[in-house]
Structure formats: C-alpha cells, structure tokens
C-alpha cells in the first residue's frame, strides 16, 4: 500500500517536472508558443487519456516533500545566522547592552509574554484593517482607472504623484489631526499599502486579451458580466502580486504610526525599549513585528493558491514561496 502510493508519487513528480518544463518553454499565457509545441503536448495528453484529460492533483505526501524541499535551504541559512549571533553575543565581542544573546531575548519574550501579546494584537489589528481597506479602495480605484478614460487621465497622474510624497512624513500630521488613537495608524497603513494594489490592479485589468473583449461583445454580454467572468479573474494574478507587497507595507505603516504617537502597539514598545537601552526587549519586539509580516504574507499566499491554482506561477509545484 505504502510502496504503491510512493510509486505513484514518483511518477507524478516526473509528470509534474515535464509539465513545468513545458510551461517554462511556452512562457506564461503564450498560446501561440504552446501551439508550436503541438506534437509533444498532445502526446503527453494522450498518454493521460485513460484517467481523463487532467493530471491528478499531487498527493499530500508529495506536497509535504515539496514543502520540506523548499524549506531546508532557508532553514539552514537561519540556523547559521542564529549560531553566529549566539557566538558573538555570548562571547561578548559586542557589549551585551547592544546585542543580547538569543537566550536573553527568549527569556524576555516568555516573561513579558502577556504584555507583548497585547501590543502585538494592537499592531496586528491596525495592520489588517489598514490592509483590507487599502485592498478595497485600491481595487475600486483600479477598476475606475481601467474602465474610464476620463478617470484614467484625472486620477492616475495624481495616484502616481501622491506616491512621491513620503508617507512616513505625513505621520505627525495625522497624529495632530486624529489624535493618539488607532485612526492615524490605520490611515497610514492604508496610504502606504494603497499604491501597489492600484498599480497591480490596473495592470491586471488592462492585460485582458483584446480578442476576448471582442468575443464578449459578440456574446452580447454587458460590462458587469464581462468584468465578472473575464476581466476580473484575468487580473487576479497581477492583483495577488500587488496584495503581497501591500500586506508587508501595511505593517510598516502601522508601526511608523505608532512611533509618532501612541500608548500601545509594537512600535510604542520599540521606542520604550530603545529609551531604556533594553536591547533584549527591542529584539523580541522586532521578532514579533516580523512575525506579523510573515504570517500575513503567508495568508495572502494561501489565498492566492486557492484563487488562482491555474496560473503559471503556481504550476511548478512550488508552494509558499514567491515564484
């Protein structure tokens, strides 16, 4: 039984590799190139015919193997990094108040966990809310720009120009306007995360094959149906790439907002630790901030895998990495 499934996994791996090579040779979305490879492609398909036209999904075991395979190299790099850190800090090549040992950081993290957790939740809340708002506003703006020439001419230059303003420099103004509460942090997260969503959304919506749009016109479909069935799904790969950038930027927005004026959140804790020369707390805080970014990024990646499993970037069997 086990042997049998292993064997299947092996054959699938081979088939997947062939598929990956084919996708790479044809290039994403290049129908003409795929046509040129007619002979090879059709023979592959014909071989699969008894089981239906479609290759079976990778088994759980094979996915785990792929996952482990994609993970061990970065894990090794991290291990080396921690070892070097520990070595330098434990031997006090650098004074302890500048660089704490990993052990000290761990101790701070565990003893002050309830406090740190509370602040993490605050920053997480600001980030997620900012990201969701930025995604919604960005998508609406992208649709407006992609559909209306007038709005394209009126809005696009302003969106581009607004990106030149250093958003971080607006933070003090936001605090003056909206006080020390959550509002200025969320606004800052929105402002920073908005731009990549708009740019990727517009690029995605504009990438629709003009022949598909001609086709939609001869099918008598209205703009809403064309958007729902053709333009929006077609824009998703671009959009998801933009959202991945946006979610990591949203963390930056929230933390910078907390720097300027706050009574809670990881940014506030960071300033506090800095003032007290508490480097262990500072490191613990940094780790938590990064963790927020990583977790949210992975969540967007999972959403991407669920939404666009058909896209070339997701076909090579690589999971949880930016490909």
């Amino acid at each position: 039984m086990t042997e049998n499934s292993l064997d299947t996994a092996g054959r699938q791996a081979a088939a997947d590799q062939a598929g990956g090579a084919r996708a790479a040779a044809a290039g994403p979305g290049s129908v003409d190139a795929a046509g040129g490879l007619d002979g090879t492609v059709s023979s592959t398909v014909v071989k699969r015919q008894p089981g239906g036209g479609r290759p079976p999904r990778p088994t759980l075991g094979r996915r785990a193997v792929t996952f482990a395979d994609s993970l061990w190299r970065p894990a090794l790099v991290l291990a080396v990094f921690f070892a070097a850190w520990w070595f330098v800090a434990a031997r006090e090549y650098v004074p302890n108040y500048l660089v704490p040992t990993p052990g000290q950081v761990w101790e701070t993290m565990t003893t002050q966990w309830s406090e740190l957790a509370r602040h993490t939740v605050v920053t997480l809340y600001e980030t997620v809310l900012g990201f969701v708002l930025a995604a919604a506003l960005g998508l609406v703006t992208a649709v407006a720009i992609a559909y209306s020439r007038t709005l394209d001419k009126a809005l696009y230059p302003i969106v581009l120009f607004a990106q030149v303003i250093p958003k971080i420099a607006i933070a003090p103004l936001l605090v003056v306007w909206f006080g020390l509460g959550l509002t200025p942090k969320i606004i800052l997260a929105v402002l920073i995360a908005f731009f990549p969503v708009v740019i990727s959304g517009v690029a995605g919506l504009r990438s629709t094959d003009p022949e598909l749009l001609d086709l939609a016109a001869t099918m008598g479909a209205g703009p809403w149906r064309t958007f729902r069935k053709i333009r929006f799904p077609n824009a998703l790969p671009h959009l998801m790439a933009g959202l991945k950038v946006a979610v990591t930027l949203a963390v930056v927005g929230a933390v910078v907002g907390e720097f300027v004026g706050a009574s809670e959140g990881l940014g506030y804790v960071l300033l506090l630790a800095n003032g007290n020369l508490d480097s262990a707390l500072l490191f613990a805080d940094l780790i938590l901030m990064s963790a927020i970014g990583i977790v949210l990024f992975v969540l967007v990646e999972i959403a991407e895998a669920l939404l666009i499993p058909w896209h070339a970037s997701r076909r090579a069997g690589v999971s949880l990495t930016t490909s």
Partner: peptide
C-alpha cells in the same frame, strides 16, 4: 471527449 476538465495549458494547439 475525455478532456472536458482539462485546462487550456494542458491541451495542444489543435485541441485548444
């Protein structure tokens, strides 16, 4: 027949 569920990239140019 047999290719109802196949995605475009899994089909040859003629099939597409």
């Amino acid at each position: 027949t047999g290719f109802e569920k196949a995605l475009p990239h899994e089909l040859s140019g003629g099939m597409q």
